[in-house]
Design a protein around this nucleic acid. Structure first.
Lengths: 341, 341
DNA sequence: CTGAAAGCGCTTACAG
DNA sequence: CTGAAAGCGCTTACAG
């Protein structure tokens, strides 16, 4: 690729030294206004674009942030990335986006590649398969700015953005109980995830508060294969210990449940009520019956992650990212999947 | 961020020159196997990672590909990006992903920023608002490797990947006609897009072949606001010239149609049949009634774009990307939204 | 087979 | 207010 004119050529054209031109373009106080004007207008005329790698090499920063997510085909993660981009773009940052496909090995490879400084910071949501976190520990111990959201890593002392998962699990379960459910199944992606644990804690506490006994058989851990998930759920729904309510901690398992129900004689909400963490509201209301949802503020989460990192990266002498958990609340929207008319 | 050890330090540790170490790591034929082994093992021990910017500066390539899409909250575009990543990751390439949000100004800004060599190539799908293409022409004329998919720019002589849009439009319309539709509405995002034009041509030809007259009032151009789209469609459905069939050239307009129908007394498929370009098959079959879809091979499209670029970028002395249109066929899946039982 | 030197395109401490 | 020089960390033509 032929990059256009470089600093030296621009300087020659202006009969100035590269030093002066560089300073003028970077709006240094050492340069007269007259020179700055001349330089800037010539730079525009010749369409001068500084070489980003020369600059990165020199300044030891890349103006790039890496985003690592477990999947792209998810409204939630797409919205988070949109939120991140909204903030970072304004500050001239670029986004490298990587998808782990819920695979720790891929996650490790990606994280290790990022160790070389290609990005100035990482914002990530870990894969559901992640239990060994040595790659993340190493990254953080090297002083690499790292922020987690949603699928956070509690053991790593940095800033994490989550939603009020305990409360959502509690309130979601309570809502099902209020609608008459007595046997409530909890669908999850992985027991290892801290958000799953939180949501599950909320679920258990709501059961206990209502005097219901938690039944481990009603907890289903799902996999990556949609068809397999549908079948596990179908079996649960047609088995001896059949639930009358489902709390799904993942968007895709709500869809799998709808598919599973279609393979039975059951009717939502009469025979089975369902509430799910779900981001795509347009689709939630088109499902049949429309789905009661717990919606996380995905866009805001992205924005907050980005704002924090931009502050850290653009202001001089910023301290390390504080070891704290920032909670942005979700909201529940009740629709037909939990209400018998 | 503290990058680890550099080449010079690694060389010192090995009591070799940086030149030799560099060559050994790059597996040069000039270096003895013994030395290579020593170097590689020490590099691993010290966890040496070459500085990507020094390398990019030196070699004038970034090992990065930029992807520019009009929206992230789309199953189609997400899958394409997944396909691109699948191929590029294997070759050590990184992906900068930018979203234009269907806004030409944002698109121009992004494209102009990419002019400086931050990425070695661009794969993009233009915004529905794009009519002035000077930014793209300039990019291409500078010799920048550029590939289009789906929302292509016919005027720019490079490789474009599309689906058989004319045929899909034709077959989709024909299917509606066979199911008894006589007044078929065509929903689109923008008349400017070449894929819209192709799909629309197919639609018109199918009408003509069936002896039906194309009615311009049955062509609806939509916007970015979901609510606004729903209302335009609702008005169409309740107006004097009410359609009995809809061909939606965009996923989101199929959803808007379902929402619009819910605001009327109409029943799908009895009063209105609908077929749509749609990528999320799990959701298509959960809609009520399930949606007849035209599905584009999104993942393959991504893979093909990436394969072409990788070939161009990794092999020496490759010619310019050929000015050709490569068609990968879509497939139609008939579901309940077009079939009266 | 190995090394010394130049250079990719910037920025900035140092000098004037 | 401006310029000459050094250096960021690599790779590779040149020399031996």
């Amino acid at each position: 690729m032929s990059t256009g004119v470089n600093l030296k050529e621009l300087a020659a054209e202006l009969k100035l030294s590269p030093s002066t031109v560089s300073r003028a373009l970077n709006d240094s106080y050492e340069i007269s206004e007259a020179t700055k004007k001349k330089v800037i207008s010539m730079a525009e005329k010749l369409n001068y674009q500084p070489n980003p790698f020369a600059r990165s090499l020199r300044e030891n920063k890349s103006k790039t942030i890496a985003v690592v997510i477990p999947e792209r085909m998810s409204n939630f993660f797409s919205k988070v990335v949109d939120g991140i981009e909204e903030v970072t773009q304004e500050h001239g940052y670029h986004l490298l986006v990587y998808c782990t496909h819920e695979d720790v090995d891929r996650e490790k490879k990606i994280v290790n590649l990022l160790m070389n400084g290609r990005a100035d910071a990482i914002v990530m949501s870990v894969s559901s398969q992640t239990s060994d976190i040595s790659h993340l520990t190493r990254l953080h111990e090297r002083g690499f700015p790292l922020v987690f959201f949603d699928r956070i890593c509690p053991a790593i002392p940095t800033t994490k953005f989550i939603t009020n998962d305990y409360e959502s699990g509690f309130e979601g379960t309570k809502h099902l109980i209020q609608q008459g459910c007595r046997k409530i199944a909890f669908l999850m992606l992985s027991k290892e995830l801290s958000i799953t644990k939180e949501r599950h804690r909320g679920y258990l506490d709501a059961l206990r508060q209502a005097g219901l006994s938690p039944e481990p058989q009603l907890n289903i851990t799902c996999c990556q294969e949609e068809e397999e998930n549908i079948e596990s759920i179908r079996k649960l729904l047609t088995g001896p210990n059949r639930p009358d309510g489902i709390l799904s901690s993942v968007e895709k398992l709500a869809l799998a449940t709808y598919h599973a129900v279609k393979r039975t004689d059951l009717k939502i909400p009469n025979d089975l009520k369902i509430i799910s963490f779900f981001s795509n509201l347009s689709i939630a209301s088109l499902l049949n019956p429309s789905l009661t949802t717990i919606t996380q503020p995905a866009f805001s989460i992205g924005e907050e992650c980005a704002k924090l990192l931009i502050k850290k990266l653009t202001k001089p002498r910023q301290p390390d990212l504080p070891n704290q958990v920032i909670t942005i609340p979700s909201h529940i929207t009740i629709r037909s999947s939990t209400i018998v008319l």
